[in-house]
Design a binder for these strands. Structure first.
Lengths: 169, 169
DNA sequence: ATATAAATGAGAATGATTATTATTTTTATT
DNA sequence: AATAAAAATAATAATCATTCTCATTTATAT
């Protein structure tokens, strides 16, 4: 399934809701909350993470964006910071098969993805029934929810050549 | 979130239902259905994929298993064949963050995973309400379902040291 | 102002996966 | 059963994403 997909980061997709942009103060608060020092690089990386229209970004996406203003930035700094943000649960790491992982700032609601295995298009969606059902499942086991990942792989109606592929049995 | 997890393939987990073992004829039929030639290596790899108690396996898991009887097998053959099986939609590729992807033969029902971000334990589960809801979502958009991935990340009750981590907001 | 711990940048190292190529095997056809 | 053509294999090199190392710079608490 997934090996046939293009890497997530290179794809167009549809965003459910635009995010409000964060002030420099807001970005610094994020760093403080994580116990991290405030640097230009980190502010710039957070801004890149929070800029639309696509909110899940690869390390490469972020590097490309930030290098426009800070050409000396290196991959190591991006990955190091992304890992710290992940550990602090400020962002989610998403890996949908081949290619690089994507990262996105957590918002106050879970959202999910529909990806076409043929054209690579990704659509975000939300569903409270699914969200609540998953919450009940883990609550019933006395677990504590940390994150939910729901990905639906489809062949979409804009891919006529592939839409007659057999579904899984 | 995911960067803190151990690789999936190295973890213990709980299986929902044992799978029936396939005869050599059944395995050959799978290859024929995919339009692939029948070789000892492929039969052995399929057997390894279909053996319990854990049905999601890394390329390394498969290589280790098959090398017991065919020591000359190499990684390239494993990956090449897994990619063909994936393209033929006979198996699913699962990548839950860091480490290697896992592969599993598709069964007739979707199943999902709960993973503890602290200890790495993975539990499989099924839920018809979620499954049907996801099906309705894609049907409503005129898409054709190819696969569903539902992963819940938790801190589990056997991890007291981590169970008081704050949940995502 | 300064000491200390943390962060950065550059590049090397690692681990997973894919590509290359010469050799071997399968399978369809004599 | 022999054989030609296409496909598969094994070995290894190459690639890609990510992490590590270490010398230098920077942020922050005092």
């Amino acid at each position: 399934m997934k090996a046939s997909q293009l890497p997530l980061g290179s794809q167009q997709d549809v965003l459910i809701e635009p995010r409000k942009s964060l002030t420099d103060e807001g970005l610094k608060d994020i760093l403080k909350k994580c116990g991290l020092k405030i640097t230009e690089q980190r502010i710039a990386i957070l801004k890149a993470l929070n800029s639309g229209p696509r909110y899940h970004k690869t390390a490469q996406d972020i590097l490309d964006e930030v290098k426009k203003t800070k050409p000396s930035l290196g991959f190591a700094t991006v990955y190091r910071f992304l890992k710290k943000l992940t550990q602090a649960q400020m962002i989610s790491e998403i890996s949908m098969g081949a290619g690089s992982s994507c990262y996105e700032l957590k918002s106050n609601q879970f959202h999910y993805h529909i990806a076409c295995v043929s054209c690579g298009k990704i659509v975000e969606f939300k569903n409270k029934l699914v969200e609540n059902t998953l919450q009940e499942i883990v609550s019933g086991k006395n677990y504590k929810m940390q994150n939910q990942v729901v990905e639906i792989y489809v062949t979409c109606d804009q891919c006529p050549k592939t839409s007659n592929k057999k579904s899984i049995e």
